[in-house]
């Protein structure tokens, strides 16, 4: 066993510190050491995207990142995207359009969609299907997830226009 190292990150806007072995995967540090259990473990081979978090402005699969690599990083998980008092429009639209069933993939889906819409605020259905292809869902068949993301984009753009 290697010695533990001291990690500092910003998670959902909060500075956090923890000790971890270098080999500990980011998903495990988030879930086990920082009690952030929104991101889930689905496949462990970088296919399913249930562990997706936002790391320095990129959607990443936290099962394939060592926490040590994320030392100093800014991380956003589904817990940081909205709050119980003010849900993010993506969270609202996933509910509105039945974009989830068992809920296991949902945190990764929403976190990924959140980044996707920042990079492309007006995606076509094809762009959403391509941009979400790193996240597997076993329940919904994706159709309503795509619909939810489309609807969220529309709402967000309308809100932006109204604000301008």
């Amino acid at each position: 066993m290697a010695d533990k190292i001291h990690l500092k990150m910003t998670v959902n806007g909060q500075p956090v510190e923890t000790l971890a072995e270098p080999r500990e995967l980011l998903i495990h540090v988030l879930r086990e050491r920082l009690d952030i259990t929104g991101p889930h473990i689905g496949c462990e081979t970088t296919h399913c995207g249930a562990c997706t978090v936002d790391l320095d402005g990129k959607s990443v699969k936290s099962c394939t990142v060592f926490a040590a690599q994320a030392d100093g990083a800014e991380i956003t998980t589904v817990e940081g995207i909205g709050s119980p008092d003010k849900l993010h429009v993506l969270q609202e639209m996933f509910r509105e359009h039945h974009g989830l069933q068992c809920g296991f993939c949902t945190p990764g889906m929403i976190t990924r969609a959140w980044r996707l819409l920042q990079e492309n605020p007006t995606p076509s259905e094809e762009e959403i299907r391509f941009g979400m292809a790193g996240n597997l869902c076993r329940c919904t068949g994706y159709q309503n997830i795509v619909k939810a993301i489309m609807a969220a984009a529309t709402e967000m753009n309308a809100a932006k226009e109204a604000a301008e």
Binding site: G49, K58, A133
Partner: peptide, 9 residues
């Protein structure tokens, strides 16, 4: 190649 998340890293 791969998927969006993998391509970011």
């Amino acid at each position: 190649i791969a998927d969006p998340q993998v391509r970011y890293l």
